[in-house]
């Protein structure tokens, strides 16, 4: 009986305690423990501890669910919040459109007076608009997937007119999904790289050319979303997601230093 079988391991003993032992191992374990009273006693003790922990905690799970945790209540509240947020975004779009149109009509004037056309869309809003459109995509979140990372970097670098090194954020819990190219304003382009955490939450790194400003890392909040941005050398960078600002800042620092180091 013990001939070709796998030898008994710690995992068998653990599985025995949890009642998860495969039936074909049960007989083997019985024989094994029969001649080892100390180990049998240990399994017995672990089982008793497990049972008493379950007993101790059973009451908490048996409590009635409070009204605010009813799934229907959570869903209704979320719908309301989303509507409010949509209104906020629509209002922001309206302001941007008016501002953009105004800027477009005033461009000759501004060119003449100030020497450079004004760009009315702030970077965080622009990046968040792109973030919101593509992160909800389950099937086509990106144009080029992460398995062609070298090609993705080459393509986006060419279109952005600078070498784009794709930051590795695995160390801070985000895996690259891929990226895409986007228009930015009337004549510029932007790249969007998308990352996902183990729980499915998504982050985007938006890189656009034609950014006149220059600033160090800072976080802006818009509704449930936050965006960490920085700008240098004619390029603007925005890392966006629905993370809490501290965590976002931590990830943004990783991206910032990775990009500064890599190119």
């Amino acid at each position: 009986m013990t001939g070709p079988e796998r030898p008994i391991g710690e995992d068998d003993l653990t599985a025995l305690v949890d009642g998860r032992l495969a039936p074909e191992r049960a007989g083997l374990l019985e024989v094994y423990l029969a001649s080892r009273p100390e180990e049998a006693a240990r399994v017995q003790a672990d089982r008793a501890i497990r049972a008493s922990l379950r007993e101790r905690l059973a009451a908490k799970a048996a409590e009635p669910i409070p009204a605010r945790l009813r799934a229907a209540a959570v869903i209704a509240e979320q719908r309301r919040a989303r509507r409010a947020q949509l209104m906020q975004v629509l209002a922001a779009c309206l302001v941007l459109t008016l501002g953009g149109a105004g800027g477009w009509f005033a461009r000759d004037l501004s060119d003449r007076v100030w020497g450079a056309p004004a760009r009315p869309t702030p970077l965080p809003q622009e990046a968040l608009a792109a973030h919101r459109i593509f992160t909800v995509e389950a099937v086509h979140p990106v144009e080029v997937k992460a398995d062609q990372e070298a090609h993705l970097a080459q393509w986006l670098s060419k279109r952005l007119g600078r070498r784009l090194s794709i930051p590795d954020l695995e160390g801070v819990g985000f895996r690259l999904i891929g990226g895409r190219l986007l228009p930015a304003g009337p004549s510029d382009v932007a790249a969007q790289l998308m990352y996902a955490a183990a729980d499915g939450s998504r982050l985007t790194l938006y890189v656009r050319c034609g950014e006149a400003g220059r600033w160090d890392l800072r976080v802006s909040k818009l509704g449930d979303f936050a965006s960490a941005t920085w700008a240098a050398g004619g390029y603007g960078y925005a890392l966006s997601g629905s993370l809490d600002p501290d965590r976002l800042m931590m990830v943004a620092r990783a991206a910032h230093s990775d990009m500064a180091g890599g190119g």
Partner: peptide, 28 residues
């Protein structure tokens, strides 16, 4: 698996159930 068995070993030690003779529930 290893965290489970290490954690349970510690619990056993703390509850002094390692000897096995004493039913744990009574002590708890």
């Amino acid at each position: 698996m290893s965290r489970l068995s290490r954690g349970r070993e510690r619990l056993r030690g703390m509850l002094d159930a390692g000897s096995g003779a004493q039913p744990v529930l009574r002590r708890v």
